[in-house]
Design a protein around this nucleic acid. Structure first.
Lengths: 213, 213
DNA sequence: AGGTGTTTGAAACACTTGTTTGACATGGCG
DNA sequence: CGCCATGTCAAACAAGTGTTTCAAACACCT
């Protein structure tokens, strides 16, 4: 079952360790021990701990983001003015499908990617920003079509709230306080979309002036 | 300006270091260096790194949560059926006020507490769960009054989404991608409330069965 | 078989980690 | 003054960190 290829085995183990303990908390030796390889092989195959993290992250996030864009294209092809619900569904389903399709490893990957968003270390946030810039821009543009009444600035702000929710959803997965049953992605998706769509569609906020009569 | 008391100086420095690098990423020596004290003094005053984290966390979170409950009581006293907006405002304002009132340190504390929510390490999540159990229960009960049409189970789920948003808001503060201007808590609060209130009030999700005809 | 480039292995590198120790200074009190 | 608790300090502790080295093993090709 486990891949014979050492590179792949290292990535599998790194995924687990980074998910469980974060970038600093995970040690290369715990990774190599779990992967059944020598410590040196990490530097041989990847170059450094940071490079290993990037590789681990990319292996998870890239296909998910590609699937996101694919589903978004599908929505845009079907609806000339896309609904918020369709856009949000295209945004979250690739994550949920990943989790559902991979069993235990799905939970690990969810935690890992959710966690990576909130890593304080520059290293991680730089990688994440890289990986998500295109997806962010495309979905923001789609949302601007779907919710024309809200300024793009506030929409961008709201999109980040949506990302925050997904991050949290993923990060909690595989812990004692998981937010959804990985087998039931329909209701997880429905709950998410119901909440987030209403939030995105809300009338633009009107900050009351600091002192109002 | 800086407190002369060593305990306080250590807590100040720990706050900064934990916020910037997380629990594992921050080293005791970087804390003591910043605080201008000896390494041993951390163990003298607190006992261990973990105990230092707990103390740092409690010093921030406790007063904020007390203020949350105070503002919630105020809302409940004024409105017999509280509005979602009022509840949400009571929930987020103590955070924003903290940030606004404390300048740089506010941003640090925001990042620190936001970050702590997503620490993978058991250590941190245990402390957080402790500190938030009462607030969570009280606000959930209030929301159940305000949104009677949504089941308490789904409401609990949505409340966690709200917490996710706040966490993210706080964690991004003090970084290059801060989500709001600390001086303008009015519009930050308005944006948050507009988004979250709409989400909370959304009609209950109706997960269609996995296979529907 | 011999030679080539690619992977592995054990060991060491220099350094940092959290924690402990014991000597030293300080300050209040009888 | 001596006494004792309270802090502080440099130094050391053992263990663990990411990274490097270099020889041995391997796989593959002519």
């Amino acid at each position: 079952m486990r891949p014979v290829d050492a590179t792949e085995r290292i990535l599998d183990a790194a995924e687990r360790e980074f998910a469980a303990h974060g970038f600093h908390g995970a040690s290369l030796r715990s990774v190599t021990r779990a992967a059944g390889v020598n410590v040196a092989s990490i530097h041989y195959h990847f170059g450094s701990k940071e490079a290993l993290l990037r590789a681990t992250l990319e292996r998870i996030v890239r296909p998910v983001n590609e699937e996101r864009l694919r589903q978004l294209d599908e929505v845009l092809a079907l609806e000339q003015v896309p609904s918020v619900e369709s856009i949000l569904t295209a945004f979250i389903r690739p994550d949920l499908e990943l989790i559902a399709g991979l069993g235990d490893r799905g939970a690990i990957m969810a935690r890992f990617s959710g966690r990576s968003y909130t890593e304080p270390e520059e290293v991680v946030s730089r990688i994440i920003t890289d990986l998500f810039s295109e997806v962010g821009a495309r979905f923001l543009a789609a949302l601007a079509l779907a919710v024309p009444d809200v300024s793009e600035d506030e929409l961008r702000w709201r999109l980040r709230c949506v990302v925050a929710i997904i991050t949290y959803l993923l990060a909690a997965q595989g812990t004692a306080r998981a937010l959804f049953d990985p087998c039931d992605i329909e209701s997880a998706s429905a709950r998410f979309v119901a909440f987030a769509a209403a939030g995105l569609r809300a009338p633009a906020s009107i900050p009351r002036p600091a002192n109002r009569l």
